[in-house]
Each structure stands twice: as structure tokens, then as C-alpha cells.
């Protein structure tokens, strides 16, 4: 019974079907299956499969995104069950992410958020045009492990540096890793401003974030 259910869960992620994923998660809750088992044996193998196929060039970003959405739907159903049992979903780390102040470009940042969330991170997406201190305050509030800062414009990219300086000013630089991204951002820019990580795309960002958490 469980085997069949787990297979269906895996497939719901691969097919990118949030409704079905939520329905299957609900069924597992009703059957009293441990949510840790549900995640690890049902849904996560789906995410892993999609990731592998993407790496092989057999699947593409849109398929990754819908798989991420399906995973999110499943986790949303399982969250209360974790709370009820007094256990916690194993997360790889907490990430505060947003597009920097003055910049309202959203898609790259949202992709990274979706990919991180699907890969087991707890993601706090602060949206676009995020003031520097909002990054800092949110990171303090949720005890973030990583701050992710996106910028599409060369003119706003320069403010990524201000977030790092603000972390230093607030004595938080030692506890929080910083990753930067966006079209004009390069490895050398990341290095120049003292960021801990940089990736050219959303899938690479997950690898970087995992490395930062020692989970790669």
C-alpha cells in the first residue's frame, strides 16, 4: 500500500501536479504515515529524479519549476502534521532572499527561491525592491543561514555590497552566508564585494547553497 502511494507521490512531483501531490500528502496524513517517511520515500525521490534528468539535459527549467510547485504543495499539507507530532521537517537551512532596493525584476529571484525550497531549504522570499535593512532584520528574526540578493540592473547591483556591509555593521556577518546573483553579476564581482557564493542560474544556486550548509 505504502509502496504504491510513495510511487504515486514521486510521480506527482515528476509530473509537476500540485493538486495531486497535496491530495496524496493528505491521504498519507489520514493513513497516519510518519511525515518524515512520506517526504523521504515519497516526494523527495521525485525531486531527485527531476534534478538528475535536468543535469542530463533531458528535462528543462519549466519542468523543474512545476516539480518545485508540487513539492511546495505537498510540504504545505505535511507541515501541520509535523507540528502535531512535535517533530520538525528536516531542512537544509534558512534562506532570506529578495531583489535589491531600486530593482523590481522578479523572475530570477523567484526561480532561485522555488529551487531552494524544493531542495529542502526553508525560504523567506521578501519580494522585489527590498530595502537593505529588511534583509538584515528578516535574517535576524528567522536566524537565517543564508541571504540571497538578486539584481538585474548594473545600476542596482552595486547595492548588493551594502547588504554585506550592513551585516558587518550589525555584527551578523559571521553567522550569515551571502549569495548574489542576477544578469550583471559575475564571480569577480561576488569576490570583490566579499560575497560567499555566486551562481549564474537557479540550479547552480542550489548547489552553492548546499555547499554553504555542508550538505552538497
Amino acid at each position: 500500500m505504502s509502496k504504491e502511494l510513495f510511487d504515486a507521490m514521486r510521480q506527482s512531483i515528476i509530473d509537476g501536479d500540485p493538486e495531486l501531490a497535496a491530495e496524496l500528502a493528505q491521504k498519507a496524513v489520514e493513513l497516519g504515515i510518519d511525515p518524515i517517511e512520506v517526504l523521504n520515500q515519497g516526494f523527495v525521490p521525485g525531486v531527485s529524479y527531476v534534478g538528475e534528468q535536468f543535469g542530463l539535459g533531458e528535462m528543462f527549467l519549466p519542468e523543474l519549476v512545476v516539480a518545485g510547485e508540487a513539492m511546495k504543495a505537498a510540504v504545505a499539507v505535511l507541515e501541520p502534521e509535523f507540528t502535531r507530532r512535535g517533530t520538525e521537517r528536516q531542512i537544509l537551512g534558512r534562506v532570506v532572499i529578495g531583489t535589491i532596493e531600486g530593482d523590481i525584476h522578479e523572475i530570477g529571484k523567484s526561480l532561485v527561491a522555488t529551487m531552494l525550497s524544493a531542495s529542502g531549504f526553508q525560504v523567506y522570499d521578501m519580494g522585489v525592491d527590498v530595502p537593505i535593512m529588511t534583509f538584515i532584520e528578516k535574517a535576524r528574526e528567522v536566524k537565517a543561514d543564508i541571504i540571497g540578493i538578486s539584481a538585474l540592473l548594473t545600476t542596482t547591483m552595486v547595492r548588493q555590497k551594502d547588504v554585506i556591509e550592513a551585516l558587518e555593521d550589525n555584527g551578523m556577518r559571521g553567522q550569515v552566508k551571502v549569495m548574489v546573483g542576477g544578469a550583471p553579476v559575475t564571480q569577480s564581482w561576488a569576490k570583490e564585494i566579499g560575497a560567499d557564493g555566486y551562481s549564474e542560474d537557479a540550479v547552480g544556486a542550489v548547489v552553492i547553497a548546499k555547499t554553504m550548509m555542508g550538505a552538497a
Binding site: 528543462f60 527549467l61 530570477g108 549564474e200 542560474d201 537557479a202
Partner: peptide
């Protein structure tokens, strides 16, 4: 067009 592997 979007590059289907990276979104750029």
C-alpha cells in the same frame, strides 16, 4: 526566447 535550462 528563454534558454530552457537556465531561464535567461
Amino acid at each position: 526566447m528563454m534558454e530552457p535550462r537556465t531561464g535567461v
